[in-house]
Simulated scan of single mutants.
Amino acid sequence: MNPILLDVPLQIETDRLIIRAPLQAGEGNVVNPAIEDSISELKQWLQLFQSIPTVEEMEILLRNAHIDFLKRESFRYLIYHKGTNEFLGTASLHAINWKISKCEIGYWINTKFSGNGYMTEAVSELTKLGFQLLKFRRIEIRCESKNTKSRKIPEKLGFELEGILRNEDLSADGKTLTDTCIYAKVN
C-alpha cells in the first residue's frame, strides 16, 4: 500500500497525555517558551537548539512538520498534559524507510516536566502506533551515549541496546566526536 493512503491519527490520548500533530497556526508561540525553559539542556544534545529559535522560525518548523506528516515522511507530535493542557514536549516517528518498514523515534521534553514519566508514556504510544497501525518491522531510538536521561526511555520500554557506535557523530555544538547508542525493537 502506498503510505499516503494510510489513515494516521492526528491525535492520540493516553491516561495523562494528548499527543497531536501540529495543525494549528500559532503553535510556535506554544513551543518556544518550552525551548526557553529547557535551552541549557537541549543545546547539549540537539544541534537544532544551539540557540533559542524565534517564534517565526518555530512556526515554520512546525508547518513543515505538518507537510511532512501529510506526505507520510515523518510524524511529529506535540505532547500536552491532558488535565492542564500545558505543552510538555515533542516526539516523532522519523527517518522512515517504507521499503524496509522501519523508523526512528526522537523526542524532547520541557525540563520542568522531566522525570514524571510523560515522555516514556508518549514514546510507548508512538511505538504501538508504529508497530500496530503503520506495520513497521523495526523501530530505533538513537541518542548520544552520555545522554543518560534519554537512554532511560528505551531501556524502560524494552528496547534492546544493539550497539554503541564510537566516534560516530559530532556533539550538538559540533566541537567533539561522540558515541551513539542504537536501541531497537523489532516486530
Rank of each mutant, 00 (worst) to 15 (best):
Phe131Trp: 06
Phe159Leu: 10
Gly28Ala: 07
Asp68Met: 12
Ala95Asn: 13
Gln44Met: 14
Lys135Asn: 13
Leu93Pro: 00
Glu121Arg: 00
Ile105Ser: 03
Ala34Lys: 05
Glu140Gln: 15
Ser40Leu: 15
Leu129Arg: 05
Tyr77Met: 03
Gly89Pro: 03
Thr54Gln: 05
Ala122Pro: 00
Cys143Leu: 13
Asn110Phe: 09
Phe69Pro: 01
Ile153Ala: 04
Leu157Glu: 01
Trp108Pro: 00
Asn147Tyr: 05
Arg63Lys: 13
Glu36Asn: 11
Lys102Ile: 06
Gly117Ile: 00
His66Arg: 14
Asn32Lys: 15
Glu160Asp: 11
Ser114Asp: 11
Lys156Phe: 01
Met58Cys: 05
Arg76Ile: 07
Ser51Ala: 12
Gln24Arg: 13
Ser101Val: 01
Gln132Trp: 11
Ser101Met: 15
Phe87Lys: 04
Trp98Tyr: 15
Ala34Cys: 11
Gly158Ser: 01
Lys82Ile: 09
Gly117Met: 01
Asn64Val: 03
Trp108Arg: 03
Gln132Leu: 15
Ala122Met: 02
Asn85Gln: 14
Lys99Leu: 13
His66Asp: 06
Ser124Val: 00
Asp68Pro: 05
Lys71Gly: 02
Arg142Phe: 12
Ile39His: 07
Val55Lys: 00
Glu155Ser: 07
Ile79Asn: 06
Phe87Trp: 08
His94Gln: 12
Thr111His: 14
Thr111Pro: 05
Pro53Cys: 03
Asn147Thr: 08
Gln50Val: 11
Asp37Glu: 12
Asp68Tyr: 12
Gly115Leu: 08
Phe159His: 09
Tyr107Glu: 00
Glu27Ala: 06
Lys71Glu: 13
Ile164Pro: 06
Glu160His: 14
Asn32Arg: 12
Val55Glu: 03
Gln24Gly: 01
Lys135Met: 13
Leu78Lys: 09
Met119Gln: 04
Phe49Asn: 11
Val55Leu: 00
Gly28Arg: 06
Ser150Asp: 05
Gly106Tyr: 02
Trp108Ala: 03
Val123Trp: 04
Val30Asp: 07
Lys149Arg: 13
Phe69Thr: 00
Lys149Ile: 08
Met119Leu: 03
Gly130Thr: 07
Tyr118Asn: 02
Thr111Glu: 14
Val30Met: 10
Leu161Asp: 08
Glu140Arg: 13
Ile35Asp: 02
Glu57Met: 11
Glu59Trp: 04
Gly117Cys: 02
Trp98Thr: 09
Leu70Asn: 10
Ser38His: 07
Asn97Lys: 14
Ser38Gln: 07
Asp37Asn: 14
Trp45Leu: 05
Gly163Glu: 10
Phe69His: 04
Ile52Met: 08
Glu27Arg: 14
Leu165His: 10
Val123Ala: 02
Ser51Leu: 09
Val123Lys: 03
Lys156Trp: 03
Cys143Thr: 13
Trp98Phe: 10
Thr127Val: 00
Lys149His: 11
Val123Gln: 03
Leu42Trp: 02
Gln47Pro: 14
